[in-house]
C-alpha cells in the first residue's frame, strides 16, 4: 500500500464565515426532572465516573471516560434494562479539539427510554469493542473504522465494510475532500489499467454542465453522425434518421394507419 500523505486541512479555513451566525443549541435540562433517568444515573455513578449528564429532547446524555465504555454499556444492558444498542458511531472534532467523540445510543423497550452515552478519544487512540454485548455493534464498529479510522480493540473482524480493502483515507473525516483526494480520483484507472494510463484516460470531468459539441471522439449528434474523430468545427452533414422498416428489413413493415382497425366496441 502507498504511504498516507496528510491532506490540507480544509476544515480550518472555510471559504465563507458569517460573523453574526450563532449555532443554535438544543435546550438542556437537569436529570433530576425525570425519576427514571435519575435512578439510572445514580446506578451508573455508583460504579463509574460520570463527567457530565443532562436531558436533551427527552433523552438522557451521559458523558463518560472512554476507558469505561464497555463497563457502562454492560451495566446498562444487564442491570438497567437497556436492551438495544440502536446506533453507534463517531463524530470528527479533530480540527477544534483534536478528538473523536464516540456515541452509543441505547434503547430500553421496557422503560420506553433512550440514553446516549458519549466519550471522547484522541485521534490515534483505540476503543473497546462492544460486539460481545450487542451483535449490532459488529458492523457499526467496522463502519466507524472504515469512515473515521477509529480502531476498535477486541473486534472479531476489524476490516473495512463499505470502501474497498485497499482504499486509502477515511471518507467521513472533515478533512477528506468530497470529490476525493488524488488516490480516490484515480482509483479505478490505477487499479484496472495501471498508473501509466493516467495520461491517456485523463482526469475526471467533475463539471456536470460541461458540453463539448465538437467532441467527435466521444459524442455524435443524433441526425448528424460523422466518423469518429472528424473535425466538425466547420459544420457537419445531415444524416437523416432511418428506421429499419424503411431500410427494407426482412419481415418488418411500416405501420399503415389506413389499414389499421380501431376497436370501438370494448365489450367485444
Amino acid at each position: 500500500m502507498r504511504a498516507y500523505t496528510p491532506k490540507d486541512d480544509v476544515q480550518k479555513k472555510p471559504y465563507y464565515t458569517d460573523r453574526y451566525w450563532v449555532a443554535p443549541q438544543v435546550a438542556k435540562s437537569d436529570v433530576s426532572e425525570d425519576a427514571v433517568f435519575a435512578h439510572d444515573l445514580e446506578a451508573i455513578k455508583a460504579k463509574f465516573e460520570v463527567l457530565d449528564a443532562y436531558i436533551q429532547v427527552k433523552q438522557m446524555v451521559v458523558v463518560i471516560n472512554a476507558a469505561d465504555n464497555f463497563g457502562v454499556i454492560e451495566l446498562m444492558k444487564n442491570e438497567l434494562e437497556y436492551n438495544q444498542l440502536s446506533e453507534l458511531s463517531a463524530i470528527d472534532w479533530l480540527a477544534t479539539e483534536g478528538k473523536f467523540e464516540i456515541f452509543y445510543q441505547m434503547l430500553s423497550m421496557s422503560k420506553r427510554k433512550r440514553i446516549r452515552v458519549k466519550c471522547k478519544i484522541d485521534e490515534k487512540e483505540s476503543i473497546q469493542s462492544l460486539s460481545s454485548l450487542f451483535r449490532s455493534a459488529d458492523w457499526s464498529e467496522r463502519e466507524m473504522y472504515d469512515m473515521f479510522g477509529v480502531v476498535v480493540n477486541n473486534h472479531p473482524f476489524m476490516k473495512r465494510i463499505l470502501m474497498p480493502d485497499d482504499w486509502e483515507g477515511f471518507p467521513l473525516r472533515k478533512i477528506y475532500p468530497l470529490q476525493g483526494d488524488e488516490f480516490a480520483q484515480w482509483y479505478e484507472v490505477d487499479k484496472i489499467f495501471g498508473k501509466e494510463a493516467r495520461e491517456i484516460i485523463g482526469p475526471e470531468n467533475r463539471d456536470p454542465a460541461r458540453v463539448d459539441r465538437y467532441d467527435t471522439e466521444r459524442f455524435s449528434r443524433l441526425g448528424h453522425e460523422v466518423p469518429r474523430g472528424t473535425d466538425i468545427s466547420q459544420g457537419e452533414p445531415d444524416t437523416p434518421l432511418c428506421y429499419q422498416e424503411n431500410e427494407g428489413v426482412f419481415l418488418i413493415q411500416k405501420f399503415d394507419a389506413e389499414k389499421s382497425v380501431v376497436i370501438s366496441d370494448r365489450d367485444r
Binding site: G180, D181, E204, N205, P208
Partner: peptide, 18 residues
Amino acid sequence: NTGGMFNTYATVQGVDRV
C-alpha cells in the same frame, strides 16, 4: 454516463473511463 448527481469520491464519473 457521467456519474450523475453523485459527484463524490466513491462514484466512477462515467463508465467510459473503464
